[in-house]
């Protein structure tokens, strides 16, 4: 088993993943790799949440007896579980031209990395019987797939993600506003983008979603070259999204560029914190499991929140 675990974990590495064609397979392998590294939970099914205790009756599985309660009360109680089924996950993926960028260091372009995250999350969510929706945007919303928990829905999501978009600018703030209009009930909205837009606009869009009480996770995907500006010697930078051209010595600009990039991340991160949205930075060189564990952590936090509300209501 450990060897199989290691075998699957390698699929979390973007360099290995890049060699695998087809988003479906990639996503499955990511999820397999993710789980093969976790300790096996004593509970069956991760979507099973503890709800209440009841007295042991004949025929109950003795493994479900809560021995701690027995120790305190000298009576047999078994745990009662309730299944959370109404978590809706909305994957919002940036398909603008800037997401197509891939430096020589990286194995995957930012868009490929984003779709791998999205597809893996969708797969994982559907396995949990959560419903999954998809919004793909560039300057506007390009595609919108309504949430569904049908197992076959995953294929639809993956097909949409695999559809390449044309050259278009990022307008993340506006797209989020458009999305907020469309989402009827509370959802976990996972935004996967490089965020190359006006930071204030992006935060405005997130704020609109937040006002509608959606939970937000911002997956900020950046290429390692964008994080380090590793070039040497005279370089002609040809901007994507009609960003113009610049002939410069990167060595002379690096220090200030990195300051600028750090400030950009910091502003985005601070804005997310104010909106109580989770901000996760992804270097496209990094393994992909971070995305999945973030999702699961957020999900369980939300379920706990909901459970506490239920308990309070009783």
């Amino acid at each position: 088993m450990p060897s199989t675990a290691r075998h699957y974990r390698k699929y979390l590495d973007p360099a290995v993943l890049a060699k695998i064609g087809g988003l479906q397979l990639r996503a499955r392998l990511i999820v397999e790799g993710f789980f093969s590294g976790m300790h096996r939970s004593p509970q069956r099914g991760l979507s099973i949440e503890f709800a209440d205790h009841r007295s042991y009756t004949q025929g109950d599985d003795i493994r479900r007896i809560d021995w701690r309660v027995y120790a305190r009360t000298d009576k047999y109680y078994v745990k009662e579980y309730e299944q959370e089924t109404n978590l809706d996950l909305m994957l919002v993926v940036d398909a603008s031209e800037s997401m197509q960028y891939r430096s020589a260091q990286a194995a995957l372009s930012k868009y490929e990395y984003a779709t791998a995250i999205a597809a893996a999350l969708a797969y994982l969510a559907l396995q949990q019987r959560d419903s999954v929706g998809l919004a793909v945007f560039a300057e506007h919303l390009v595609e919108f797939v309504r949430p569904s928990n049908d197992a076959a829905h995953w294929r639809t999501v993956v097909d949409e993600l695999e559809r390449r978009s044309g050259p278009a600018k990022t307008a993340l703030g506006r797209a989020l506003g458009e999305l907020a209009e469309r989402l009827a009930h509370r959802m976990l909205v996972v935004v996967i983008s490089d965020g190359f837009d006006d930071v204030a606009g992006v935060l405005r869009g997130l704020k609109l979603l937040r006002y509608r009480r959606h939970d937000l996770v911002v997956c900020h995907v950046l290429d390692p070259a964008e994080l380090t500006l590793p070039f040497r010697g005279p370089t002609l930078f040809e901007g994507l999204e009609a960003g113009g051209r610049l002939l410069a010595d990167p060595g002379a600009l690096r220090r200030r560029y990195l300051q600028e990039m750090t400030q950009f991340q910091a502003r985005l991160r601070a804005g997310c914190a104010r909106l109580r949205a989770d901000y996760v930075l992804f270097n496209t060189l990094a393994p992909l499991d971070v995305a999945l564990s973030t999702y699961l952590a957020t999900r369980s936090a939300r379920i706990r929140q909901r459970s506490s509300r239920v308990m309070a209501g009783r």
Binding site: M99, F231, T235, L236, F237, G244
Partner: peptide, 14 residues
């Protein structure tokens, strides 16, 4: 004699 690099984060660089 320079090399050409496509670049996404152009706004920062500019």
């Amino acid at each position: 004699r320079y090399r050409r690099v496509p670049w996404a984060a152009m706004s920062f660089l500019l």
